[in-house]
Design a binder for these strands. Structure first.
Lengths: 197, 197, 197, 197
DNA sequence: TCGTAAGCGAGACGGTACGTCGAGTCTTGCT
DNA sequence: AGCAAGACTCGACGTACCGTCTCGCTTACGA
């Protein structure tokens, strides 16, 4: 992923970095993110919670941001689900995702990162591939539907995926309220049928 | 706007608050937001840029956040447009908004605020009405379409609005790329027709 | 706003520095120096003992050293004493000084500063005048003795002063033992008579 | 010198300690002491300069301090000189010492150690015998003078030695200027004759 | 001749203090 | 009263060393 593998190519001298400390740091980061959100996350707090010196953190991550990105990367994304029917696929994937979202640090981490990346090229670079790979299963489901003839060949799948998850993004960023799993059904139906149906 | 009017309920002794300083502060806030984003915005920076003492800022806003929210509130939102046709209404509104978005501080401010509100109840409360009122013209256009019979009476207009702006939100937060006005046409068409069209 | 008001150049804008904080810092420095010596003195400790933020310290002193120099400057030096007789003058001055030395932070501060100045030009510059002014009363007493005819006109007073305080310096730096007031009598006698007497 | 001999009492298994590393460490210590003084000396710096691991240093010396003391112990002290005449003995010894002083690390190391020992009992204990043994030749010369009848039997030789080197100590610690060999003649003469001569 | 035991350079470990910066508050003298 | 200026306390930042602890070698000895 990034420069975090404990034994860098060929290099071997010196005591190797502790995989245990690494994980403790990531765990502590996620815990604190859940407890207080991005703005309450301090490197000192992470160090203390993980039982680790600050230097051990800064040795691995240049700053708070890449640390959060990596912690974020360990969180679950969409989980593919192939029922042979697009509507069901989407409803299950989104439903499951929302559950995960509401029970993990995801809901705390994602908006912060998304907001911050705008002003932070480094974060942007780090975040890009993580963000993209998370959408993958969604695109896959749409491709399968296209192959089955459920969807026109002309449809831009990227745009289609955006349309499907769009209402979630809007709710997330502009409405702030918790995202309820019951929203998923009508949401997917509307996206499939269109407003004018 | 909010509780910032310079002459509070009848009280009058002493020197009145300077309207000029007020505006200078708001302007400086927006400028700095554009330049460095949320995380680089400091009250000290605002004070210095506005040629104002810090106390003058804290006398009007309880903290950094309400200041940013008010500055944000001064930025343009959707501008209503009634062509008698939903597709055209939406395309024009979204197209115009994107233009505004790309030429003002909006693109810098919005994601930051949206990201931060999640961990900050105070901000959330402040942000809510501002955020809602910005969506208003969109909902209005959808209502008109419903009255004209273009849209079914059963449709949840909130959800419909989310579907329409959803792809913009996704592009904004997860793809990070600038939002191009050309995207608007296909986006609206797809939302109106639905994926299965 | 202001306009053309001729501000007193440099001196007056803003809240003035707290004389109280200043003194609290100096006091805390001396206390901690007495308790743990130079190497145990931390700026953080001083701040906490003085009930002051670190920034308040760094606003006044560029680093630990100038702070110590100033604290040192507040400690008493030789106190002039004119009995009309060189031997008595010297014995009293040295005796009194040793008392002061053994009951204040002086014994902790002086050797550290003396040792450090060798590698620290800034400190050297700061320390020079303080150090010199402390010797002054000694030189004065020697001058009076010269005027009375007790001492030859040919004698280099600087060297003479060095000879008189020399044994103290030696005891201080190389023997480390506490300096006993009883040493003063024989010391001065020997310096006046010379080894070969 | 101390407990640093590489082959400890009989035990022998394993690789013996490298005498070469030992010396490289001592040399590096002295070099760095000359360059930046006590406060700038870091064990990490010594290790790096000596091309040695930190553990190799800590295996031999319990901490920074004993290392410095041992390095200091390797520097030259007074060198005895017996001309049959006290004045000449002293002038030569002091003169030679000053030369050595000005051309070796001594001038950098001595003040730092002397200053630090005051706050550091461990250092003090370590430093004591080293410091004392360096004065030895001076005391010897004074004893010889006493035996020859040049000096009264009543004189306290310790005090006499202090008087002789006193001005050097003063110049060193309080005047900071380099010590010039020309000072030696008048200095010794004055100490021998006394101020009142 | 080989295993064992210690030493080796390198560098990560948990800590503590550094000197800096910003938040939000307070205190000057002016307007 | 409000104002610009700037000092105040507090607390996090990212860095540098301390003294300790592995790593994977290397080097001698004694079985």
């Amino acid at each position: 992923m990034s420069g975090t593998s404990p034994n860098n190519s060929g290099s071997s001298a010196g005591r190797p970095r502790s995989e245990q400390a690494h994980q403790a740091i990531l765990d502590a980061t996620l815990e604190l993110l859940v407890e207080g959100g991005y703005s309450a996350l301090t490197v000192e707090g992470v160090a203390s919670r993980a039982g680790v010196g600050k230097a051990t953190i800064y040795r691995r991550w240049a700053s708070k941001l890449p640390l959060i990105v990596e912690a974020f990367g360990g969180l679950p994304g969409f989980e593919d689900c192939d029922t042979g029917n697009l509507s069901d696929d989407l409803k299950r994937m989104l439903g499951r995702y929302l559950e995960v979202f509401n029970t993990t640090a995801l809901s705390a981490v994602l908006p912060s990162l998304a907001g911050e990346r705008f002003h932070n090229d480094e974060l942007s670079t780090l975040f890009e591939p993580v963000s993209m790979s998370r959408r993958r299963p969604l695109i896959d489901a749409l491709e399968r539907a296209q192959e089955r003839g459920e969807l026109s060949r002309e449809i831009d799948l990227e745009l289609a995926a955006d349309l499907v998850v769009g209402p979630i993004a809007v709710a997330l960023f502009f409405k702030g309220g918790r995202l309820k799993p019951e929203m998923v059904g009508p949401m997917v139906d509307l996206a499939l049928r269109g407003l004018r149906a």
